[in-house]
Amino acid sequence: MKHAANKQAGWLLVLWLLSPLVPACDGLTGADLWIREGPPGATVLAGFGRLINRSRETLQVSEIRSTDFKLVMLHETVLQAGQAHMVARDRLLLSPGEVRALSPGGLHLMLMQPTVSLRRGQSAVVTFTCGNTQNSMVFSVRSSDQ
C-alpha cells in the first residue's frame, strides 16, 4: 500500500516537473494582427502582427488553424544571396516576455485556400495551440499596400 502511494507520488512529481514544457496558451496574446488583402480569387494570403508571451513560462505554439482557411502554416522568408526562400517552421517557441514579430519579409502566417472571400475591413479568427490548450485571435484584413 505504501509502495503504491510512493509510486503515485513519483508520477505526480514527474508530471509536475514536465508541466512547464506544455504550458497553456493563456499567456499568448497578439497585437496589431492583420492579413494582407489579396487579389480576388487569391488562394494564399499572409498574416502579420506581433505575438507576445505574457506568461512566466516558455510557450510552444505547435499548431495554428483557422476556420477561414483550409490550411495555416508558419513560414519565414529567408533571404540568402538575393534569393528568397520560404522556410516552413513546425513550431514557435516564445520565452517569457518575448515579443515575436510576424512581418513582411520575415516570419509570417501562410494562410492557404480561404474558405471565404476576405476583403479589407473584414476579419478572420486564427487559433493557436500550445500543448492541449488553445487561444483564438482576430486578424483584420488590410489593404495590400501596407
Binding site: R36, G38, P39, A42, T43, V44, L45, A46, H75, T77, A84, M86, P104, G105, H108, M110, L111, S144, D145
Partner: peptide
C-alpha cells in the same frame, strides 16, 4: 502569384 509575402511587398 501564390507567394503571399515577398511578391506583393515587392510589387508595392
Amino acid at each position: 502569384t501564390h507567394c503571399p509575402d515577398v511578391c506583393p511587398t515587392t510589387l508595392n
